[in-house]
């Protein structure tokens, strides 16, 4: 049930953070049982996740890489789209918190026999998981599950909508290197149309006060994107000029058949991150990529492996951020008698 290649109306209504208290006052917990998207998070909640992730990061460097915080909790990784990177990252995060993990890969499941998402979820819910990590090709799948299931739902990517943990780990990486998010010039280059990573990042970075510039082939530019509080560069040079951070998005090769880009080579010539283009940014720029990279398409190998690249840090930080999200949701809004 994937979205077609047609351009999407971009979601422009961003809910204000919570009624009553200022969204900037520090919080000690997340308001809901789920992490469905960045759209639902206030700046204070984003900061809470990043601060908690900072404490979690150190656990990866201990001799015993485990803490008992989620002992006895069951977490289900329900992935309807193939993923190694994100699923592994979640699995390591869950295991480091001592949770019991269950990986469900759809190709071997009853969905092949025609079971609906809702039924799959209800069946799972009957076995009382504490958290479900869901990746699905339909935008909004997590919101559906959140209504059906008592378990907390963590969105690991829904259609072309959001990928909140990716945006959080990106923000964590930037904050770790630059000390802040506010006021930084952050350029995001690539396939902006199909990318849920883009949407989550734009929501998060603008909410935290960064100066976000986008650039990509006009055929891959969502209508109305400028209404999200970002600038659209007329050329990649304009977008990355003087940038503190450059984020490359994957050209999704599977989209090539739709005629979006004349050829990969031409894409690299016009938009690819080469060492020469990197020189246009600030001398202390950091280069990011959510992975997996297409070397020689969106990014040159010398840049990917070069001194400005923090791509591998992103992967390490992904585990810490996901540990933080799991920890904050697992202790979360339990008003039922489960405790």
């Amino acid at each position: 049930m994937t979205d077609t290649g047609a351009r999407e109306r971009v979601e422009t209504a961003v809910p204000e953070g919570g009624a009553g208290a200022s969204p900037d006052a520090p919080v000690t917990r997340l308001r809901t049982k789920d992490l469905l998207g960045i759209a639902e998070l206030s700046p204070a909640e984003i900061r809470l996740i990043l601060d908690t992730a900072e404490a979690m990061k150190e656990i990866a460097y201990r001799p015993v890489k485990k803490v008992p915080a989620l002992r006895g909790r069951t977490v289900v990784n329900l992935f309807f789209e193939p993923s190694t990177r994100t699923r592994t990252s979640f699995e390591i995060a869950e295991k480091r918190l001592s949770a019991d993990t269950l990986n469900i890969a759809i190709s071997t499941s009853s969905v092949v026999k025609g079971e609906t998402l809702a039924d799959t979820a209800l069946n799972l819910q009957a076995m009382a998981p504490d958290l479900i990590v869901l990746r699905h090709s339909a935008s909004g799948a997590c919101h559906l599950l959140s209504r059906i299931c008592r378990a907390g739902i963590i969105n690991a990517g829904d259609g072309m909508h959001e990928h909140p943990t990716q945006a959080l780990l990106d923000a964590f990486t930037i904050r770790e290197r630059k000390g802040r998010l506010e006021g930084l010039k952050i350029a995001i280059v690539g396939d902006l149309l199909h990318s849920r990573v883009l949407r989550s990042n734009v929501l998060l970075l603008t909410r935290m006060g960064a100066d976000v510039w986008l650039c990509g082939p006009p055929t891959l530019l969502p209508a109305g994107i400028d209404r999200l509080g970002v600038r659209v560069g007329s050329s990649v040079e304009e977008a990355i000029g003087g940038a503190n951070v450059i984020m490359m998005l994957r050209i999704q090769l599977e989209r090539m058949q739709g005629g979006f880009v004349p050829s990969l080579r031409e894409y690299f010539t016009v938009f690819g991150m080469t060492p020469e283009r990197v020189c246009l940014a600030r001398p202390d720029v950091i280069i990011m990529h959510p992975g997996p990279m297409n070397r020689g398409v969106e990014i040159a190998s010398e840049v990917a492996d070069g001194p400005y690249s923090v791509i591998l840090d992103q992967v390490a930080n992904g585990v810490a951020v996901r540990m933080a999200v799991l920890y904050l949701l697992a202790g979360g809004a339990e008003d039922e008698a489960a405790a």
Partner: peptide, 17 residues
């Protein structure tokens, strides 16, 4: 993360790590 009362609070904030 090693507290024996973690996750037992029916209400109340998660202790800050």
């Amino acid at each position: 993360l090693y507290r024996d009362d973690l996750m037992r609070h029916a209400v109340g904030p998660q202790p800050l790590v």
